[in-house]
């Protein structure tokens, strides 16, 4: 039971950190993609969406190459702290973030594109500079879409399997998430354990999506219930 709770904690921690990373990296990307045509926009668009098209194990293999000693990320971490990220929870966070990024960027970008130009013009007349317009006009008005994107990235991360097992391994107590534990239980022929794990993952996923969707509701957000 204890190890089950620990596995659940690993899963939730990786998913939440991956979601945070997606937000930090994805919001500027969504902003850039929501602006009118500029050079190389199409290229960025394709690059961001690529993980959606490729099978997760292929994404995992690419990430493994990047993180290996010969790869750019591996060389960097080797120089910084003399170890590779392979088989660490950080690798799982990165894998989940890469796969969740396109889902977030699509939702956030659509929402940012939907902000009426008049709102921005009005803010400019009031003397707002570009940054405070983003902060005070665009992000609040696009918030339901941004929040939906975060939920999608979180959901994707909680169910992530193929890329995670490639780069983070399947090490119980360290990098084994609920999804990986279910795989292991099935492989070992422990069907009742697999059923129990699946049931718990379903319950946790349903609960967190229910909470998340309530927060998305703009009516609640206006009353000040929008911040977690």
């Amino acid at each position: 039971m204890n190890s089950l709770l620990w596995t659940l904690w690993i899963s939730l921690r990786i998913s939440l950190l991956a979601t945070a990373l997606v937000m930090v990296v994805g919001l500027p990307l969504a902003w850039m993609l929501s602006r009118p045509r500029w050079k190389a926009k199409g290229l960025l668009d394709v690059a961001v969406n690529l993980p959606l098209v490729l099978p997760p194990t292929v994404v995992g293999y690419y990430l493994l190459l990047l993180m290996s000693r010969g790869g750019p990320v591996g060389a960097l971490t080797q120089r910084l702290w003399g170890a590779s990220l392979i088989f660490t929870p950080t690798a799982a966070v990165l894998a989940s973030a890469v796969l969740g990024l396109p889902l977030f960027v699509q939702a956030a970008r659509n929402a940012l594109e939907g902000v009426p130009p008049e709102a921005y013009e009005a803010a400019q007349i009031d003397g707002a500079d570009r940054w405070s317009a983003i902060r005070r006009i665009y992000i609040p008005l696009a918030w339901p879409g941004i929040w939906t994107g975060l939920l999608l990235a979180y959901a994707r991360s909680l169910g992530e399997f193929g890329a995670t097992i490639m780069v983070a391994g399947n090490i119980p107590g360290k990098t084994q998430t609920m999804s990986l534990a279910i795989y292991s239980a099935v492989q070992a022929g422990h069907d009742s354990a697999a059923n129990l794990l699946s049931l718990i993952l379903t319950a946790v996923a349903s609960f967190s999506m229910w909470v998340g969707l309530r927060w998305r509701n703009p009516a609640r957000a206006r009353r000040g219930g929008g911040s977690p």
Partner: peptide, 21 residues
């Protein structure tokens, strides 16, 4: 509505960075 995005960002970013050390 208050701009809550920066707040959310900081709250989520701190543990993310801590995990990367």
């Amino acid at each position: 509505m208050k701009p809550i995005a920066p707040f959310v960002l900081v709250v989520l970013l701190v543990p993310a960075l801590a995990a990367c050390k």
